[in-house]
Write a protein that binds this DNA or RNA. Sequence first.
DNA 1: TCGACGGCTTGATGTTCATCAATCGAGTCC
DNA 2: GGACTCGATTGATGAACATCAAGCCGTCGA
Lengths: 232, 232
Amino acid sequence: MPESAFEGLRGLHLFEAMAEQHFQALMRGAFVQTFPPQIELITEGDPSDFLHVVLSGSVDLFSNWNDRETSMATVRPISTFILAATIRDAPYLMSARTLEKSRIALIPSDEVRVIFGLDDGFARAIVTELAQCYRSVIKAQKDLKLRSSTERLANYLLRSQIRADGEAEFELGFEKRRLASVLGITPEHLSRAFKGLQSHGVVADGTRVRIEDRKKLERFAKPNPLIDDPVK
Amino acid sequence: MPESAFEGLRGLHLFEAMAEQHFQALMRGAFVQTFPPQIELITEGDPSDFLHVVLSGSVDLFSNWNDRETSMATVRPISTFILAATIRDAPYLMSARTLEKSRIALIPSDEVRVIFGLDDGFARAIVTELAQCYRSVIKAQKDLKLRSSTERLANYLLRSQIRADGEAEFELGFEKRRLASVLGITPEHLSRAFKGLQSHGVVADGTRVRIEDRKKLERFAKPNPLIDDPVK
DNA sequence: TCGACGGCTTGATGTTCATCAATCGAGTCC
DNA sequence: GGACTCGATTGATGAACATCAAGCCGTCGA
Protein backbone atom coordinates (compact mmCIF):
# COMPACT_ATOMS: atom_id res chain seq x y z
CA MET A 1 0.00 0.00 0.00
CA PRO A 2 1.69 3.23 -1.13
CA GLU A 3 2.16 5.94 1.45
CA SER A 4 0.14 8.42 -0.59
CA ALA A 5 -3.01 6.32 -0.32
CA PHE A 6 -3.41 7.46 3.25
CA GLU A 7 -2.75 11.07 2.50
CA GLY A 8 -5.03 13.24 4.53
CA LEU A 9 -5.63 10.57 7.11
CA ARG A 10 -2.69 11.55 9.30
CA GLY A 11 -3.93 15.12 9.32
CA LEU A 12 -7.33 14.11 10.67
CA HIS A 13 -7.85 15.25 14.23
CA LEU A 14 -8.49 11.63 15.15
CA PHE A 15 -5.04 10.47 14.07
CA GLU A 16 -3.07 13.62 14.71
CA ALA A 17 -1.92 13.11 18.29
CA MET A 18 -1.02 9.43 18.14
CA ALA A 19 2.50 7.96 18.09
CA GLU A 20 3.92 7.42 14.61
CA GLN A 21 4.49 3.72 15.24
CA HIS A 22 0.88 3.25 16.27
CA PHE A 23 -0.32 5.09 13.21
CA GLN A 24 1.87 2.83 11.09
CA ALA A 25 0.47 -0.22 12.86
CA LEU A 26 -3.07 0.92 12.10
CA MET A 27 -2.23 1.56 8.47
CA ARG A 28 -0.58 -1.83 7.97
CA GLY A 29 -3.93 -3.60 8.19
CA ALA A 30 -5.80 -0.82 6.44
CA PHE A 31 -6.57 -0.33 2.79
CA VAL A 32 -8.16 2.23 0.55
CA GLN A 33 -10.79 1.34 -1.98
CA THR A 34 -12.78 3.29 -4.54
CA PHE A 35 -16.46 2.43 -4.72
CA PRO A 36 -19.02 3.30 -7.41
CA PRO A 37 -22.23 5.11 -6.45
CA GLN A 38 -25.03 3.30 -4.64
CA ILE A 39 -22.85 0.58 -3.15
CA GLU A 40 -23.91 -0.64 0.27
CA LEU A 41 -20.75 -0.52 2.37
CA ILE A 42 -22.13 -1.82 5.64
CA THR A 43 -25.44 -3.23 6.83
CA GLU A 44 -27.01 -2.48 10.18
CA GLY A 45 -26.83 -5.37 12.59
CA ASP A 46 -23.54 -6.66 11.21
CA PRO A 47 -20.52 -6.81 13.52
CA SER A 48 -18.22 -3.83 13.08
CA ASP A 49 -15.26 -5.17 11.09
CA PHE A 50 -13.81 -1.90 9.88
CA LEU A 51 -13.63 1.69 10.88
CA HIS A 52 -14.46 3.64 7.73
CA VAL A 53 -13.01 6.95 6.64
CA VAL A 54 -14.46 8.86 3.71
CA LEU A 55 -11.55 10.33 1.73
CA SER A 56 -13.57 11.61 -1.22
CA GLY A 57 -17.15 11.42 -2.43
CA SER A 58 -19.95 11.06 0.12
CA VAL A 59 -21.75 8.38 2.07
CA ASP A 60 -25.33 8.10 3.25
CA LEU A 61 -26.06 6.57 6.64
CA PHE A 62 -29.54 5.09 6.74
CA SER A 63 -31.66 2.72 8.72
CA ASN A 64 -34.54 0.32 8.23
CA TRP A 65 -37.41 -0.95 10.32
CA ASN A 66 -40.52 -2.80 9.32
CA ASP A 67 -40.10 -2.12 5.58
CA ARG A 68 -39.52 1.57 6.18
CA GLU A 69 -36.26 3.37 5.58
CA THR A 70 -34.82 6.70 6.65
CA SER A 71 -31.65 8.64 6.01
CA MET A 72 -29.88 9.46 9.24
CA ALA A 73 -26.92 11.54 8.05
CA THR A 74 -24.53 12.27 5.22
CA VAL A 75 -20.80 11.75 5.74
CA ARG A 76 -18.50 14.01 3.76
CA PRO A 77 -14.69 14.02 3.46
CA ILE A 78 -12.64 13.79 5.47
CA SER A 79 -14.35 12.07 8.33
CA THR A 80 -14.99 8.71 9.87
CA PHE A 81 -18.16 6.82 10.51
CA ILE A 82 -19.29 4.03 12.84
CA LEU A 83 -16.56 4.91 15.32
CA ALA A 84 -18.87 4.17 18.26
CA ALA A 85 -19.68 0.66 17.04
CA THR A 86 -15.98 -0.01 16.51
CA ILE A 87 -15.04 1.11 19.99
CA ARG A 88 -17.81 -0.78 21.72
CA ASP A 89 -17.29 -3.83 19.49
CA ALA A 90 -21.02 -3.72 18.90
CA PRO A 91 -23.14 -4.23 15.78
CA TYR A 92 -23.70 -1.32 13.41
CA LEU A 93 -26.84 0.66 14.18
CA MET A 94 -26.96 2.09 10.67
CA SER A 95 -26.29 0.94 7.15
CA ALA A 96 -24.10 2.95 4.78
CA ARG A 97 -24.04 3.39 1.04
CA THR A 98 -22.03 5.56 -1.31
CA LEU A 99 -23.96 8.46 -2.77
CA GLU A 100 -21.39 9.01 -5.50
CA LYS A 101 -18.08 7.50 -6.52
CA SER A 102 -16.10 7.54 -3.27
CA ARG A 103 -12.70 6.66 -1.90
CA ILE A 104 -12.98 4.98 1.47
CA ALA A 105 -10.22 3.90 3.88
CA LEU A 106 -11.00 0.77 5.85
CA ILE A 107 -9.17 0.16 9.10
CA PRO A 108 -9.71 -3.15 10.88
CA SER A 109 -11.81 -2.58 13.99
CA ASP A 110 -9.88 -4.97 16.22
CA GLU A 111 -6.69 -3.13 15.31
CA VAL A 112 -8.35 0.17 16.24
CA ARG A 113 -9.32 -1.26 19.62
CA VAL A 114 -5.79 -2.53 20.23
CA ILE A 115 -4.22 0.82 19.47
CA PHE A 116 -6.95 2.52 21.50
CA GLY A 117 -5.67 0.50 24.47
CA LEU A 118 -2.03 1.40 23.79
CA ASP A 119 -2.04 5.02 22.63
CA ASP A 120 -3.31 7.64 25.06
CA GLY A 121 -3.30 10.43 22.50
CA PHE A 122 -5.49 8.33 20.22
CA ALA A 123 -7.85 7.52 23.09
CA ARG A 124 -8.25 11.23 23.88
CA ALA A 125 -8.80 12.12 20.24
CA ILE A 126 -11.58 9.55 20.11
CA VAL A 127 -13.20 11.22 23.11
CA THR A 128 -13.48 14.60 21.44
CA GLU A 129 -14.61 12.99 18.20
CA LEU A 130 -17.36 11.01 19.94
CA ALA A 131 -18.45 13.98 22.02
CA GLN A 132 -18.82 15.94 18.79
CA CYS A 133 -20.82 13.13 17.15
CA TYR A 134 -23.05 12.86 20.19
CA ARG A 135 -23.81 16.55 20.17
CA SER A 136 -24.58 16.44 16.45
CA VAL A 137 -27.21 13.75 16.96
CA ILE A 138 -28.75 15.61 19.88
CA LYS A 139 -29.09 18.63 17.62
CA ALA A 140 -30.69 16.51 14.93
CA GLN A 141 -33.16 15.19 17.46
CA LYS A 142 -34.08 18.66 18.65
CA ASP A 143 -34.56 19.68 15.03
CA LEU A 144 -36.92 16.73 14.53
CA LYS A 145 -38.94 17.15 17.68
CA LEU A 146 -39.23 20.91 17.87
CA ARG A 147 -39.74 21.93 14.25
CA SER A 148 -42.24 21.34 11.49
CA SER A 149 -41.04 19.93 8.20
CA THR A 150 -41.01 23.33 6.47
CA GLU A 151 -39.03 24.83 9.34
CA ARG A 152 -36.57 21.96 9.12
CA LEU A 153 -36.17 22.52 5.40
CA ALA A 154 -35.68 26.26 5.87
CA ASN A 155 -32.96 25.73 8.46
CA TYR A 156 -31.38 23.00 6.37
CA LEU A 157 -31.10 25.44 3.47
CA LEU A 158 -29.59 28.10 5.72
CA ARG A 159 -26.96 25.62 6.88
CA SER A 160 -26.32 24.52 3.30
CA GLN A 161 -25.72 28.08 2.29
CA ILE A 162 -23.07 28.46 4.98
CA ARG A 163 -21.40 25.25 3.78
CA ALA A 164 -21.41 26.83 0.31
CA ASP A 165 -19.41 29.81 1.66
CA GLY A 166 -22.51 31.98 1.80
CA GLU A 167 -23.19 31.97 -1.94
CA ALA A 168 -26.77 33.00 -2.70
CA GLU A 169 -27.09 30.08 -5.10
CA PHE A 170 -25.77 26.61 -4.40
CA GLU A 171 -26.16 22.89 -5.09
CA LEU A 172 -28.06 20.56 -2.78
CA GLY A 173 -25.40 17.92 -3.39
CA PHE A 174 -27.81 15.02 -3.74
CA GLU A 175 -31.29 14.10 -4.93
CA LYS A 176 -34.34 15.67 -3.39
CA ARG A 177 -35.75 12.29 -2.48
CA ARG A 178 -32.77 11.79 -0.19
CA LEU A 179 -33.17 15.23 1.31
CA ALA A 180 -36.78 14.32 2.01
CA SER A 181 -35.65 11.22 3.86
CA VAL A 182 -33.08 13.21 5.84
CA LEU A 183 -35.81 15.65 6.85
CA GLY A 184 -38.11 12.77 7.74
CA ILE A 185 -40.79 13.42 5.10
CA THR A 186 -41.88 12.08 1.72
CA PRO A 187 -40.58 13.46 -1.61
CA GLU A 188 -44.08 14.74 -2.39
CA HIS A 189 -44.24 16.66 0.83
CA LEU A 190 -40.77 18.09 0.28
CA SER A 191 -41.95 19.44 -3.05
CA ARG A 192 -44.75 21.26 -1.26
CA ALA A 193 -42.45 22.46 1.48
CA PHE A 194 -40.25 24.10 -1.17
CA LYS A 195 -43.32 25.82 -2.54
CA GLY A 196 -44.15 27.05 0.93
CA LEU A 197 -40.72 28.66 1.15
CA GLN A 198 -41.12 30.61 -2.09
CA SER A 199 -42.79 33.43 -0.19
CA HIS A 200 -39.72 33.51 2.07
CA GLY A 201 -37.33 34.06 -0.81
CA VAL A 202 -36.34 30.52 -1.75
CA VAL A 203 -36.11 29.56 -5.41
CA ALA A 204 -35.49 25.92 -6.27
CA ASP A 205 -34.61 24.66 -9.73
CA GLY A 206 -33.75 20.99 -9.67
CA THR A 207 -30.90 20.51 -7.24
CA ARG A 208 -29.91 24.19 -7.42
CA VAL A 209 -31.29 26.45 -4.72
CA ARG A 210 -31.21 30.21 -4.54
CA ILE A 211 -31.82 32.18 -1.38
CA GLU A 212 -32.95 35.63 -2.51
CA ASP A 213 -32.99 37.20 0.93
CA ARG A 214 -31.28 35.39 3.77
CA LYS A 215 -32.60 37.75 6.43
CA LYS A 216 -36.15 37.11 5.32
CA LEU A 217 -35.68 33.35 5.38
CA GLU A 218 -34.10 33.60 8.82
CA ARG A 219 -37.11 35.44 10.15
CA PHE A 220 -39.16 32.40 9.23
CA ALA A 221 -36.62 29.68 10.09
CA LYS A 222 -35.43 31.13 13.40
CA PRO A 223 -32.07 29.32 13.30
CA ASN A 224 -30.52 28.61 16.68
CA PRO A 225 -26.86 27.86 17.39
CA LEU A 226 -27.88 25.12 19.84
CA ILE A 227 -29.53 23.27 16.96
CA ASP A 228 -27.92 24.51 13.77
CA ASP A 229 -24.37 25.47 14.58
CA PRO A 230 -22.18 22.58 13.38
CA VAL A 231 -19.38 23.07 15.90
CA LYS A 232 -20.80 24.67 19.03
CA MET B 1 -17.40 16.52 52.62
CA PRO B 2 -17.78 13.09 54.23
CA GLU B 3 -16.45 10.12 52.31
CA SER B 4 -19.88 8.46 52.30
CA ALA B 5 -21.40 11.26 50.29
CA PHE B 6 -19.67 9.92 47.21
CA GLU B 7 -20.62 6.34 47.87
CA GLY B 8 -21.54 4.66 44.66
CA LEU B 9 -19.60 7.15 42.57
CA ARG B 10 -16.35 5.20 42.70
CA GLY B 11 -18.16 2.11 41.55
CA LEU B 12 -19.45 3.85 38.44
CA HIS B 13 -17.83 2.54 35.27
CA LEU B 14 -16.72 6.07 34.52
CA PHE B 15 -14.62 6.38 37.70
CA GLU B 16 -13.66 2.77 38.17
CA ALA B 17 -10.39 2.56 36.30
CA MET B 18 -8.87 5.88 37.34
CA ALA B 19 -5.99 6.33 39.80
CA GLU B 20 -7.08 6.84 43.40
CA GLN B 21 -5.26 10.15 43.68
CA HIS B 22 -7.04 11.47 40.60
CA PHE B 23 -10.39 10.34 41.93
CA GLN B 24 -9.60 12.13 45.18
CA ALA B 25 -8.64 15.25 43.26
CA LEU B 26 -11.94 15.19 41.41
CA MET B 27 -13.88 14.72 44.64
CA ARG B 28 -12.11 17.57 46.41
CA GLY B 29 -13.87 20.14 44.28
CA ALA B 30 -17.08 18.18 44.11
CA PHE B 31 -20.14 18.31 46.33
CA VAL B 32 -23.40 16.49 46.72
CA GLN B 33 -26.68 18.32 47.00
CA THR B 34 -30.28 17.24 47.46
CA PHE B 35 -32.80 19.06 45.30
CA PRO B 36 -36.59 19.20 45.58
CA PRO B 37 -38.74 18.21 42.58
CA GLN B 38 -39.09 20.50 39.57
CA ILE B 39 -35.84 22.37 40.12
CA GLU B 40 -34.06 23.48 36.98
CA LEU B 41 -30.48 22.30 37.44
CA ILE B 42 -29.00 23.58 34.21
CA THR B 43 -30.19 25.69 31.30
CA GLU B 44 -29.34 25.04 27.69
CA GLY B 45 -26.88 27.52 26.27
CA ASP B 46 -25.09 28.03 29.58
CA PRO B 47 -21.39 27.13 29.81
CA SER B 48 -20.84 23.71 31.34
CA ASP B 49 -19.65 24.39 34.90
CA PHE B 50 -20.28 21.01 36.45
CA LEU B 51 -20.47 17.41 35.42
CA HIS B 52 -23.63 16.09 37.07
CA VAL B 53 -24.19 12.62 38.52
CA VAL B 54 -27.64 11.49 39.59
CA LEU B 55 -27.25 9.52 42.83
CA SER B 56 -30.93 9.13 43.61
CA GLY B 57 -34.21 10.40 42.22
CA SER B 58 -34.46 11.22 38.51
CA VAL B 59 -33.77 14.07 36.14
CA ASP B 60 -35.48 15.17 32.95
CA LEU B 61 -33.39 16.47 30.07
CA PHE B 62 -35.41 18.81 27.89
CA SER B 63 -35.01 21.45 25.24
CA ASN B 64 -36.74 24.56 23.99
CA TRP B 65 -37.07 26.32 20.69
CA ASN B 66 -39.46 29.02 19.59
CA ASP B 67 -41.76 28.64 22.61
CA ARG B 68 -41.95 24.89 22.18
CA GLU B 69 -40.49 22.36 24.57
CA THR B 70 -39.66 18.69 24.36
CA SER B 71 -38.33 16.04 26.71
CA MET B 72 -35.20 14.46 25.35
CA ALA B 73 -34.41 11.79 27.96
CA THR B 74 -34.74 10.75 31.57
CA VAL B 75 -31.62 10.21 33.66
CA ARG B 76 -31.84 7.63 36.42
CA PRO B 77 -29.33 6.64 39.13
CA ILE B 78 -26.53 6.10 38.95
CA SER B 79 -25.42 7.91 35.85
CA THR B 80 -23.96 11.15 34.61
CA PHE B 81 -25.32 13.74 32.27
CA ILE B 82 -23.87 16.47 30.05
CA LEU B 83 -20.55 14.65 29.85
CA ALA B 84 -20.09 15.66 26.22
CA ALA B 85 -20.52 19.37 26.97
CA THR B 86 -18.05 19.10 29.83
CA ILE B 87 -15.41 17.41 27.72
CA ARG B 88 -15.76 19.78 24.79
CA ASP B 89 -16.02 22.78 27.11
CA ALA B 90 -19.09 23.73 25.14
CA PRO B 91 -22.49 25.13 26.16
CA TYR B 92 -25.19 22.72 27.29
CA LEU B 93 -27.46 21.58 24.47
CA MET B 94 -30.21 20.61 26.89
CA SER B 95 -31.71 21.88 30.10
CA ALA B 96 -32.23 19.62 33.10
CA ARG B 97 -34.75 19.57 35.92
CA THR B 98 -35.40 17.21 38.77
CA LEU B 99 -38.50 15.06 38.35
CA GLU B 100 -38.59 14.16 42.03
CA LYS B 101 -36.47 14.82 45.09
CA SER B 102 -32.97 13.93 43.93
CA ARG B 103 -29.41 13.73 45.19
CA ILE B 104 -26.98 15.06 42.62
CA ALA B 105 -23.19 15.09 42.70
CA LEU B 106 -21.62 18.10 41.03
CA ILE B 107 -18.04 17.85 39.80
CA PRO B 108 -16.37 21.00 38.46
CA SER B 109 -16.01 20.70 34.68
CA ASP B 110 -12.56 22.22 34.49
CA GLU B 111 -11.35 19.70 37.07
CA VAL B 112 -12.82 16.89 34.96
CA ARG B 113 -10.95 18.20 31.92
CA VAL B 114 -7.67 18.41 33.87
CA ILE B 115 -7.96 14.83 35.14
CA PHE B 116 -9.04 13.73 31.67
CA GLY B 117 -5.67 15.01 30.47
CA LEU B 118 -3.77 13.25 33.25
CA ASP B 119 -5.48 9.90 33.74
CA ASP B 120 -5.51 7.47 30.83
CA GLY B 121 -7.92 5.06 32.46
CA PHE B 122 -10.39 7.91 32.99
CA ALA B 123 -10.00 9.01 29.36
CA ARG B 124 -10.77 5.50 28.13
CA ALA B 125 -13.76 5.16 30.44
CA ILE B 126 -15.12 8.38 29.00
CA VAL B 127 -14.78 6.92 25.52
CA THR B 128 -16.96 3.91 26.27
CA GLU B 129 -19.45 6.08 28.14
CA LEU B 130 -19.74 8.53 25.24
CA ALA B 131 -19.97 5.77 22.66
CA GLN B 132 -22.85 4.33 24.65
CA CYS B 133 -24.58 7.71 24.88
CA TYR B 134 -24.13 8.25 21.16
CA ARG B 135 -25.68 4.92 20.32
CA SER B 136 -28.61 5.62 22.63
CA VAL B 137 -29.42 8.84 20.81
CA ILE B 138 -29.13 7.16 17.42
CA LYS B 139 -31.65 4.58 18.60
CA ALA B 140 -33.97 7.32 19.81
CA GLN B 141 -33.73 9.01 16.43
CA LYS B 142 -34.55 5.78 14.58
CA ASP B 143 -37.50 5.32 16.90
CA LEU B 144 -38.71 8.83 16.05
CA LYS B 145 -38.23 8.65 12.30
CA LEU B 146 -39.33 5.11 11.59
CA ARG B 147 -42.31 4.64 13.88
CA SER B 148 -45.74 6.13 14.40
CA SER B 149 -46.62 7.49 17.82
CA THR B 150 -48.63 4.41 18.78
CA GLU B 151 -45.77 2.16 17.75
CA ARG B 152 -43.38 4.26 19.81
CA LEU B 153 -45.66 4.00 22.83
CA ALA B 154 -46.00 0.22 22.41
CA ASN B 155 -42.24 -0.25 22.27
CA TYR B 156 -41.74 2.15 25.15
CA LEU B 157 -44.07 0.03 27.27
CA LEU B 158 -42.26 -3.15 26.29
CA ARG B 159 -38.96 -1.59 27.37
CA SER B 160 -40.53 -0.35 30.60
CA GLN B 161 -41.71 -3.83 31.39
CA ILE B 162 -38.18 -5.16 31.02
CA ARG B 163 -36.91 -2.42 33.36
CA ALA B 164 -39.60 -3.58 35.82
CA ASP B 165 -38.08 -7.09 35.78
CA GLY B 166 -40.76 -8.36 33.45
CA GLU B 167 -43.69 -7.81 35.82
CA ALA B 168 -47.01 -7.75 33.97
CA GLU B 169 -48.01 -4.63 35.89
CA PHE B 170 -45.69 -1.72 36.56
CA GLU B 171 -45.45 2.01 37.20
CA LEU B 172 -44.68 4.53 34.47
CA GLY B 173 -42.46 6.41 36.89
CA PHE B 174 -43.66 9.89 35.91
CA GLU B 175 -46.66 11.79 34.64
CA LYS B 176 -48.24 10.94 31.31
CA ARG B 177 -47.73 14.47 30.05
CA ARG B 178 -43.98 13.92 30.34
CA LEU B 179 -44.23 10.58 28.60
CA ALA B 180 -46.10 12.34 25.81
CA SER B 181 -43.27 14.83 25.47
CA VAL B 182 -40.69 12.03 25.44
CA LEU B 183 -42.61 10.32 22.66
CA GLY B 184 -42.91 13.61 20.79
CA ILE B 185 -46.69 13.97 20.96
CA THR B 186 -49.33 15.89 22.93
CA PRO B 187 -50.94 14.55 26.14
CA GLU B 188 -54.28 14.34 24.33
CA HIS B 189 -52.80 12.23 21.61
CA LEU B 190 -51.07 9.97 24.12
CA SER B 191 -54.44 9.33 25.73
CA ARG B 192 -55.74 8.14 22.37
CA ALA B 193 -52.65 6.09 21.69
CA PHE B 194 -53.25 4.21 24.96
CA LYS B 195 -56.79 3.51 23.81
CA GLY B 196 -55.46 2.20 20.54
CA LEU B 197 -53.29 -0.27 22.44
CA GLN B 198 -56.21 -1.71 24.43
CA SER B 199 -56.91 -4.15 21.65
CA HIS B 200 -53.28 -5.26 21.92
CA GLY B 201 -53.60 -6.15 25.58
CA VAL B 202 -52.54 -2.91 27.29
CA VAL B 203 -54.52 -1.70 30.31
CA ALA B 204 -53.65 1.72 31.73
CA ASP B 205 -54.93 3.05 35.03
CA GLY B 206 -53.31 6.34 35.94
CA THR B 207 -49.55 5.78 35.98
CA ARG B 208 -49.96 2.01 36.39
CA VAL B 209 -49.79 -0.05 33.23
CA ARG B 210 -50.61 -3.70 32.76
CA ILE B 211 -49.54 -5.75 29.76
CA GLU B 212 -52.00 -8.62 29.56
CA ASP B 213 -50.22 -10.45 26.77
CA ARG B 214 -46.68 -9.48 25.90
CA LYS B 215 -46.51 -11.67 22.79
CA LYS B 216 -49.59 -9.98 21.41
CA LEU B 217 -48.20 -6.52 22.04
CA GLU B 218 -44.92 -7.53 20.45
CA ARG B 219 -46.70 -8.62 17.29
CA PHE B 220 -47.94 -5.06 16.98
CA ALA B 221 -44.84 -3.22 18.25
CA LYS B 222 -42.23 -5.25 16.39
CA PRO B 223 -39.43 -4.40 18.84
CA ASN B 224 -35.94 -4.48 17.36
CA PRO B 225 -32.67 -4.82 19.27
CA LEU B 226 -31.07 -2.16 17.04
CA ILE B 227 -33.63 0.35 18.34
CA ASP B 228 -34.89 -0.95 21.65
CA ASP B 229 -32.09 -2.91 23.26
CA PRO B 230 -30.53 -0.60 25.88
CA VAL B 231 -27.04 -2.11 25.74
CA LYS B 232 -26.45 -3.53 22.28
C1' DT C 1 -35.26 9.72 -33.27
C1' DC C 2 -37.65 7.50 -30.23
C1' DG C 3 -39.09 4.92 -26.39
C1' DA C 4 -38.08 3.75 -21.79
C1' DC C 5 -36.91 5.03 -17.45
C1' DG C 6 -36.41 7.48 -13.11
C1' DG C 7 -37.02 11.33 -10.40
C1' DC C 8 -39.84 15.38 -9.62
C1' DT C 9 -44.26 17.48 -9.39
C1' DT C 10 -49.35 17.98 -8.95
C1' DG C 11 -53.96 16.85 -7.53
C1' DA C 12 -57.21 14.18 -4.84
C1' DT C 13 -57.88 11.87 -0.80
C1' DG C 14 -56.94 9.68 3.68
C1' DT C 15 -54.35 9.22 8.05
C1' DT C 16 -51.95 11.03 11.76
C1' DC C 17 -51.49 14.24 14.93
C1' DA C 18 -52.34 19.10 17.11
C1' DT C 19 -55.41 22.49 18.98
C1' DC C 20 -59.25 24.15 21.53
C1' DA C 21 -62.78 23.67 24.75
C1' DA C 22 -65.16 21.17 28.08
C1' DT C 23 -65.54 17.71 31.61
C1' DC C 24 -63.98 14.53 35.03
C1' DG C 25 -61.59 13.09 39.02
C1' DA C 26 -58.10 13.05 42.47
C1' DG C 27 -55.86 15.55 45.68
C1' DT C 28 -55.30 19.82 48.69
C1' DC C 29 -56.21 23.76 51.36
C1' DC C 30 -59.32 26.39 54.09
C1' DG D 1 -67.60 19.77 53.45
C1' DG D 2 -66.64 22.84 49.62
C1' DA D 3 -63.83 25.58 46.56
C1' DC D 4 -59.71 25.12 44.12
C1' DT D 5 -56.04 23.34 41.28
C1' DC D 6 -53.98 20.33 38.12
C1' DG D 7 -53.53 16.52 35.23
C1' DA D 8 -56.07 13.14 32.37
C1' DT D 9 -59.62 12.39 29.24
C1' DT D 10 -63.12 13.24 25.49
C1' DG D 11 -65.16 15.40 21.51
C1' DA D 12 -65.00 18.53 17.65
C1' DT D 13 -62.24 20.54 14.42
C1' DG D 14 -58.19 21.79 11.77
C1' DA D 15 -53.36 21.45 10.31
C1' DA D 16 -49.56 18.61 8.96
C1' DC D 17 -48.16 14.99 6.53
C1' DA D 18 -48.75 10.38 3.81
C1' DT D 19 -50.54 7.75 0.03
C1' DC D 20 -52.05 6.90 -4.54
C1' DA D 21 -52.34 7.96 -9.21
C1' DA D 22 -51.32 10.66 -13.00
C1' DG D 23 -48.49 13.57 -15.69
C1' DC D 24 -44.08 16.05 -16.69
C1' DC D 25 -39.41 16.30 -18.07
C1' DG D 26 -34.86 15.46 -18.22
C1' DT D 27 -31.35 11.42 -19.49
C1' DC D 28 -29.84 7.57 -21.86
C1' DG D 29 -29.34 3.85 -24.81
C1' DA D 30 -30.97 1.15 -28.95
